[in-house]
Design a binder for these strands. Structure first.
Lengths: 259, 259
DNA sequence: ACGTACGATTCCACCCGACGGAAGACAGTG
DNA sequence: CACTGTCTTCCGTCGGGTGGAATCGTACGT
């Protein structure tokens, strides 16, 4: 569609590895399969270089060709993700509890996320067939202060992380979005005290979230479980215990099978 | 544990990109976090090179450090996988139907797989809490001829692919494993005729599988849905309709939201 | 059919980034 | 304290990586 904004597409460092990563970056931000020339442009690499690198990636299986001759990331990347540290084991142990939670809450969305830097990354998410609210997919990212899950993760992060985060510019998505560090610090306080949180109107005006922390065997928070609901919906508080219970189940699943 | 078998660890091509991929390969096959020296050895790279590359990967987010200072793949790999062609959209559209199937079949395992070369890759899999049969995780691979899902995928593949596959050495995992090309060809015939399959004792003696094909909008098979059951269990045939129904639902979900 | 435009591929000579060795910093262990 | 392993920095040399140009392929428009 709009092909004229690849200007600031992250100038790849003049190192060979940097160029490979630049190509990955292109695919990470691209929504569909790309032609080699498109990759070349977006990665700011010469066609020659792109061509050679792409073929190395093809041989290895990092990218694959579509029937129309375009390129996209290959299934081997799936394997890599599965080997990726935190995500894998966590997801595996968490799914049963997430499913139970999801089953109790037909119409809603269930999310499991971990913190990566200043962002919340979705490790798993189940939404019901119709529920089109919240379009996050696995691997998707959101600012920490706008989602219930994110606030859980930030509330339990090192104070150094909290300070740094609150000192950075805080994005607002609605007129209700909390961007005042003082308010957020208060939220964190509350979270650590109650071990759950409710947010409303932060991402879009008519949605809210309920989330709770997942602990590892050493009382450290490794993830957050949360659901997204329509604020029009009755008492959000009614869901709190279900979410907390799911979080507790996952905590238990992680603690027992420690390795 | 056994650190003496890194000999045949895929000599990385003497190209910079090849070295990067060698590192990815190390993590792909490693089960836990690794020290940099371990990566260096397994990838057959000098410490200097490993050190420099690893830091580039760290900066970009491809790998991350554990608390103990070891290295593992970073959460950004999750994002890459989510952007990976076939897997993503397919998985997204399929999950609701898979969940419905899973809900009906408490004790069992539900798998969604696609074909990648001569292997079946699991795109999603749900197992019930206790059911410890079948240890496949997302991104996991299996030979095509041994699983119900794999046979579905192979039965609908180009005949060129079939011929090539059947001409290659066929692994057997139990004394019941079918490794006779003629027998397998017969199976494929049957699959295309009935649009479902039952296998028994192929991977382990006491498990069986039931699977059905998922089509895209152009009558091509893009995935297979299957379940794993204990052969001791009653009539495997009883599950066929449920599996076929789930496959049909996914087919429908893919066709409708074509893009 | 012809011409144009764009993408993919191959070839090549120059050159700069990548490489490995060596040596030093650091931590844990006996 | 010596020893063993890991991680890190520095540097001179060398080879793989690089961009340009030329070729081939294919789809589109006139």
């Amino acid at each position: 569609m709009r092909d004229l904004m690849q200007d600031e597409a992250a100038a790849p460092r003049p190192t060979a590895a940097g160029r490979v990563l630049a190509i990955f970056e292109v695919f990470r931000t691209a929504s569909s399969a790309l032609s080699m020339a498109e990759v070349s442009r977006r990665a700011s690499l010469s066609m020659t270089t792109t061509h050679r690198l792409m073929h190395e990636l093809l041989d290895w299986g990092a990218v694959e060709r579509t029937d129309e001759g375009r390129y996209r990331l290959g299934t081997k990347m799936l394997e890599l993700a599965a080997s990726s540290g935190a995500a894998l084991r966590l997801r595996e142990r968490a799914v049963p509890a997430l499913l139970r939670l999801h089953r109790m809450l037909r119409v809603l969305v269930v999310h499991l996320s971990i913190r990566d830097g200043f962002e919340s990354v979705y490790v798993e998410s189940f939404r019901s067939a119709h529920g089109t609210i919240s379009t996050n997919r696995i691997g998707g990212r959101m600012p920490l202060h706008l989602t219930a899950n994110g606030r859980i993760l930030l509330a339990y992060a090192d104070s150094a992380v909290q300070d740094a985060y609150l000192a950075s510019p805080l994005e607002a998505r609605t007129r209700f979005s909390d961007v005042d560090p003082a308010v957020l610090r208060g939220e964190f306080e509350l979270v650590r005290e109650r071990r759950w949180i409710i947010t409303t109107g932060q991402v879009t005006e008519n949605t809210g979230g309920i989330a709770a922390p997942v602990f590892d065997g050493h009382d450290r928070v490794v993830a957050a479980v949360g659901i997204v609901v329509n604020v029009a919906e009755q008492h959000l508080e009614d869901y709190v215990e279900m979410v907390r219970s799911a979080a507790a189940q996952i905590t238990h699943a992680i603690e027992t099978v420690e390795d």
